[in-house]
């Protein structure tokens, strides 16, 4: 009798412990290298933490007061918003056009999908260096624009304060085209073909089909792409650090550049406070996504 109860408890114990065994490696790794550092970042933002001495003192909100009264912080915030505003419309519409093109039933379309995806798998350092050459005063872009008469004299787009942020944003767009194209492509392939067929019967042309069927049917992808663009855009770093390094005269200093500079100056508490501002912005964007796409909400509740 007691043996039976024992083996039953043992069985139940194994049953209870199994999911945690599956989760164990990930939990250990994520707690050590993700959860604990996040919690510490929250703490540090309310401390005056000296990373080398290892001493700290509670200072309340004074780190936040300091960044909110720092002109460079506001400039970084404005630049971040401007940067996202440049990238957003391009990210929403260009990949949609690409997806529509590579969704055509024509030969070699698979090859074009691969060619459009190449920038996505390119290391960001390489992408930044390539564009830095293209954007330089003697580079191809200046030559081309002078050649067709859009600008009079060759310029270095990255050291010009009016063009710097825009051309840096274009590197991001270039690198993301293929990624967002795939999201749209999946969406396009789920649109029933009958819609297009009946539109053809009614005499609709390609452009009408695109604006009246394709665009409305890809609204879910547009939402997803917008939110991903905003969340990734808030975190932009490499494209800028490797091309303009925040210059000229702070014209491309974004929030993450600001955080990075504070970190390099060992002002880790200030960096953490600015990081929290970044987190709040990312959360707002994510909440927006959850409100706009009910599917994601279901996942959270599952």
């Amino acid at each position: 009798m007691s043996r039976i109860t024992f083996s039953l408890t043992k069985k139940r114990m194994i049953k209870n412990i199994t999911p945690w065994l599956f989760l164990l490696p990930s939990i250990v790794i994520l707690v050590t290298f993700l959860i604990i550092p996040i919690v510490e970042a929250f703490q540090w933002s309310f401390l005056d933490y000296k990373i080398i001495a290892g001493t700290s003192e509670f200072v309340g909100f004074s780190n936040f007061k300091e960044i909110f009264s720092d002109e460079l912080f506001w400039k970084a915030l404005v630049n971040t918003v401007l940067y996202v505003a440049i990238v957003l419309p391009l990210n929403v519409f260009l990949p949609m056009i690409l997806a529509d093109l590579v969704n055509q039933k024509v030969r070699a379309v698979g090859l074009f999908r691969v060619l459009y995806y190449l920038p996505v798998v390119t290391p960001i350092v390489v992408a930044a260096l390539m564009w830095k050459m293209l954007y330089s005063q003697d580079g191809a872009l200046s030559n081309f624009l002078v050649g067709i008469g859009i600008i009079d004299d060759p310029i270095n787009f990255l050291t010009n304060s009016t063009t710097a942020l825009m051309v840096v944003a274009f590197i991001t767009v270039w690198k993301g085209l293929g990624y967002y194209m795939i999201i749209y492509l999946a969406n396009l392939q789920s649109i029933p073909n009958q819609l297009y067929e009946s539109a053809s019967i009614d005499g609709a042309n390609s452009i009408q089909k695109f604006t009246k069927i394709t665009m409305p049917m890809t609204v879910p992808s547009m939402t997803l792409v917008s939110v991903l663009t905003i969340i990734n855009g808030l975190k932009v770093f490499e494209e800028i650090a490797l091309t303009t390094n925040g210059g000229p005269a702070g014209a491309t200093t974004t929030l993450v550049m600001y955080i990075y500079d504070k970190f390099m100056n060992l002002e880790v508490s200030i960096a953490s406070a600015a990081g929290l501002v970044l987190l709040v912005l990312a959360i707002v964007a994510s909440l927006l996504q959850m409100r706009l796409t009910s599917k994601r909400e279901d996942d959270l509740r599952a």
Partner: peptide
């Protein structure tokens, strides 16, 4: 929920504590 929430957290927020760890 915890795992999904951490996906929103930018790396730049916790890079300094991670550097120390």
């Amino acid at each position: 929920t915890i795992i999904i929430s951490t996906m929103t957290v930018p790396f730049q927020l916790y890079m300094a504590p991670l550097f120390q760890s």
